[in-house]
Amino acid sequence: MICDPGANVQKFLIAVLTIVSVVLSATLGVVLQETQVSTIEIDRDRAALAAQISATQTESEKYGPGLLKSLIEVRLAIARNTLAMLDQKRVSYIRRIALDYRLDGRPVHGASDQELNMIIEEISQAEKKAAASKLEAARYSGGLVQAMSLLKAETDELSVSQLRLKFYSAKHGIPMPLPNLRENSNKLAQPPGKVVKDRDAL
């Protein structure tokens, strides 16, 4: 039996091309799928934050310089910083850069669903409180009482913004070190110095 060398080479080339195309297709699929899955949630969160920033900017433009406008600007700064944080995370996924966050020497990972649900509940309670404060402020047409009510409502809105920052940080595994309030309260409870008798004070 005579073997045709050209046919064997052709079969070999077809087999090699098939294997290469399968490997390339699988690699491309993994790369595209991983990026899409990684960024889809971030894109949703970024869109929500962009809408929030736009609404806050519109609200800020209603007021002249003063304490109320300053509080709104703080809320706006928190939202912008949160958006910048998500932009950084998104770019790291697209460029395939591993961001390894560490807090107190330990790696930081995304929060569990249970932890996120707890933060969502906190946000819901804070939003209800802010809405109630806004309704209270709307009862007045001006004067000191309305100004104080508006300040309270804006302070409550500021709490909502801080909780949203906490949520997005926890969701995407970005560390947000916060001061230990228990340590501070213990320090404040202690006397500021050594207690001495009057005659020893000089």
Rank of each mutant, 00 (worst) to 15 (best):
L158V: 08
R199A: 05
S149W: 07
I72M: 04
R199C: 05
T18A: 06
G64H: 11
V195T: 15
I123R: 02
A7Y: 10
E127F: 06
R90L: 03
L83I: 08
V16F: 07
K166M: 05
A84H: 14
Q36D: 12
A48V: 15
V195D: 15
L68F: 05
T27Q: 11
Q57K: 09
L71P: 04
L103S: 01
R96Y: 05
L32W: 15
I72Y: 02
T39Y: 11
A77H: 15
D100W: 09
P107C: 00
P65W: 13
Y93L: 05
E115T: 09
A26P: 11
E73I: 12
L135G: 08
I2C: 01
V74Y: 13
G110A: 01
E127Y: 07
V74M: 08
Y101W: 15
V31I: 12
S159R: 08
V20K: 12
D198P: 06
R102P: 01
F12K: 00
S159C: 04
V31G: 01
L163Q: 05
N8P: 04
E122V: 04
T155N: 09
G143F: 14
L163I: 11
Q88M: 08
L165R: 05
M176A: 01
V23D: 06
L24V: 12
Q10G: 01
Q162T: 08
V74C: 03
E183K: 14
T82G: 02
G193T: 13
P175S: 00
K69Y: 07
A50Q: 15
D104Q: 08
T18R: 11
Y93P: 03
Q190P: 06
S54Q: 15
L86D: 00
A126N: 08
